[in-house]
């Protein structure tokens, strides 16, 4: 009897998580909108580059503490961050929403969020996949700077910095902070973020079709030396249909497309 009651209570809690009205999101969104991003674009203490250095590279300057380049276009759909390029301190997208797709987490948590345009594209991608018998599940989208810092520090503590840097981004350099990246998985790999995802029907489908919805596999196989990250067949990055299709057709990473690593 106790087991039945406990099970029922747990189920009710979960149901609440699934059916939660989106008013929490609305409040969160309003909060985010109220934080004007303009105030974080120009950071105190960053070293400005000469016109020649930052020309066409969308760099505002160098953070003297981390020696990372600070991008000047964090709100651009084509914003380019990697191990050498980070977002401005305190950056938060102001148009985060929850895409209406199957997700491993309950409603109302940050990891369900994406920027509006990317969210709409992801909904279309999931819809098309579903029509073709491909059952995708979203796992991890937006991460705040603080959340990424916690994850990175945990990975460094558990695996050491060198190993952690192969798969985990330093805070400020994660694509998840842009609100334009979503990790996806499937039941066939137990919803894990595993390279075996590439061998599944779902992973293969994404390789062939993601660009049609504006997404790319950001860290492809065989390009670790270029991207700095191991193969992540689960990591989708939204770039818009035109650029995503170009990268897909030319087999390019963002690093190769821009032609510079910073």
């Amino acid at each position: 009897m106790k087991l039945l009651i406990t099970t029922t209570l747990i189920t009710l809690v979960f149901l609440n998580g699934c059916q939660q009205i989106q008013q929490d999101d609305t409040a969160k969104h309003a909060d985010m909108v109220s934080q004007k991003r303009g105030s974080v674009l120009i950071e105190k203490g960053i070293v400005e580059l000469s016109d020649e250095q930052d020309h066409d590279k969308n760099v505002a300057g160098i953070d003297p503490e981390t020696e990372l380049y600070v991008v000047d276009n964090p709100d651009s759909i084509e914003v380019y961050v990697n191990k050498q390029r980070r977002l401005p301190e305190g950056y938060e997208p102001d148009d985060l929403v929850e895409p209406d797709v199957e997700h491993l987490s309950q409603q109302g948590v940050n990891r369900r969020l994406l920027r509006q345009e990317a969210a709409e594209a992801l909904e279309l991608l999931f819809e098309q996949a579903d029509e073709q018998g491909i059952d995708l599940v979203a796992v991890s989208g937006y991460r705040s700077y603080e959340r990424q810092k916690t994850i990175y520090q945990s990975n460094v503590a558990n695996k050491g910095q060198e190993e952690a840097d192969r798969f985990s981004a330093q805070p400020g350099t994660s694509e998840h902070q842009t609100g334009l990246a979503m990790d996806v998985s499937a039941a066939s790999v137990s919803f894990l973020l595993d390279q075996a995802f590439d061998q599944t029907d779902e992973g293969s489908w994404l390789v062939e079709h993601a660009h049609q919805f504006g997404f790319v596999i950001r860290y492809p196989e065989g390009k670790t030396d270029i991207t700095g990250y191991e193969f992540e067949p689960w990591h989708l990055r939204y770039l818009g249909e035109e650029l995503a299709t170009h990268l897909y057709e030319e087999d390019l990473t963002l690093e190769e497309y821009f032609g510079y690593h910073y």
Partner: peptide, 23 residues
């Protein structure tokens, strides 16, 4: 059903959270 899938996914997520698999 969508609702059942949602509950099921949350249970799996909770299970993984115990093992700190998904972060």
């Amino acid at each position: 059903t969508v609702e059942e899938k949602c509950v099921y996914l949350l249970m799996i997520n909770l299970c993984y959270s115990v093992g700190s698999v998904i972060n």
